[in-house]
Write a protein that binds this DNA or RNA. Sequence first.
RNA 1: GCGCCAGUAGCUCAAUGGAUAGAGCAACGGCCUUCUAAGCCGUAGGUUAGAGGUUCGAGUCCUCUCUGGCGUACCA
Length: 542
Amino acid sequence: MKDYLQEKFEEAAAKLDYLDYSRVVFNIPANPEHGDYSTNIAMISAKSAKKNPRQIAQEIIDSLQLDEKIITKVEIAGPGFINFYFNPASITSVIERVFEQKESFGKSKKYSGKKAILEFVSANPTGPLTVGHGRNAVIGDTLSNMLEWSGYEVDREYYFNNAGRQMRVLGDSLRLRYLQLFDENIVFPEDYYQGEYLIDIAKSVQKKYGDGLKAESAEGKFKEIAEKEIFSDIERTLDRIQIKFKNFYNEQTLYEDGKIQAVLDEFKSRNLSYQQDNATWLKLTEMGQEVDKVIIKSTGEPTYRLPDIAYHRTKFDRGYDLIIDLFGSDHAATYPDVLASIKALGYDLDKIKVLIHQFVTILEKGEVVKMSTRKANFITLDELIDEVGADVVRYFFIMRNISSHLNFDIDIAKKQSDENPVFYLQYAHARICSILRMVVEQDLKISTENLELLVHPAEQNLLKMLHQFEEEVLSSAESFEPQRISNYLEELAAKFHKFYTDCRIMGTEKLLAEARIALAEATKIVLKNGLTILGLSAPEKM
RNA sequence: GCGCCAGUAGCUCAAUGGAUAGAGCAACGGCCUUCUAAGCCGUAGGUUAGAGGUUCGAGUCCUCUCUGGCGUACCA
């Protein structure tokens, strides 16, 4: 529908010099009395054309060569809106397109041939993933799916820091937990990792090595084991919500292959770093930032900033067309330094897009639960999946705008999981499957022969929703807004449920019944495709 | 103090600068002898935190104020 209008306007723009095609936008009026699509281009053009908007609207309409079989009515309304009314019979063509493309319906080739990298989760292996990581994980994976549907080839990447103080403390925490198994009097410092999971790992170490590691240092075996065990736990959790990474990129390799040193050398040769108080500082103030920051501490150990810069540089060097970083607002302060540094090293920042999502606030028994991995008073993503299931977890985390805080009330999630909107979508899919099973029994078939019979308002509204799917997927991907997909699907499901109620199949005249079955089948395909983008299952029975 | 994000119905949230601000939950009232009632229909609920400004037109953009979250390290 929209493509048709765009095509016609492009032709008209060639004839009217003040009509700027790039500014033409169509939207679907909230009020159906204002047509199927409307545009405000006449009002926008009024100033530069120095004409009355309604007069411009009339000139535009006159130069559009519209097919009456497709568009039945065009009107000028209000201050200068142009409203278009589509022929109900022409709208049904979407069903045939859905049947041709099936599970590919909604995919775009707009960005095919382009490569993207999306870095997300990137939690350091110091403990199980928290609910906060869960939001990041689900947003990142869903965005990746959306970009893939837009034509991109997407590499999902997980970066983690495994060299440095934090990991040393982790290794030592495990060492002490291990020693406590032999001597209860060993003191466990308050600022060490308090979580139960380290006690579990300590026990498995004891099982495997007995007391053979009593003299082992924190930096060696213990750090290695802690990292390995915690990581396999993280991967298991991600797997439960259908998330798989292509790469796990670790900080250590940046040291091993000299990338850290290379960046350091380059800062030095470009005169972007200096020594002070026994530390190496980066001249961020010369790169437009507020203050200079330390990249190598007086202890000789780099701060996280340096490997972060070296890591980001690899993303540029690896030749991606689009680089996306996704992280929580607690890291919002770190990326400007990294970007400024990358730019100072001569890279073009146009390719990179940094997305920040706000925090998840956990409410339990009406109280806000403050969480910290160190203090181990967090709710793990695993526990959440146990409580409400993978589909609900995934849906919950993307149904809100990423820049809004997300309130997650554990009690409501448990108690009302049956009323979660995800079931509303899945129920629509299951209902259609049920209809299609019935169709076989009733000796009816799916037919696209008489689609013009679909003129009932409930049928027409559903058809229009199907039309919107492709552009919704594409524009959601382009604006990096996963929640728009869920909003769309809720609306699609609502239109289907209305159709189901108003337009029965059994007991209806055969030709109309078969056209309705075709509409139901097409809706099923679109729902399934949408659920697939969100990483949700599409059950055939509920 | 400074920076980023937010503030919309009782609650959780929608709304590419467009026409009368919409859903779900909660409340109340209807609809199953026919394809899944996890559904549909209806009632009620609003000064879009507040004050200015920009324009044909503002929940949306700009400025200020208030409230909340997150930052503001030689932690990551």
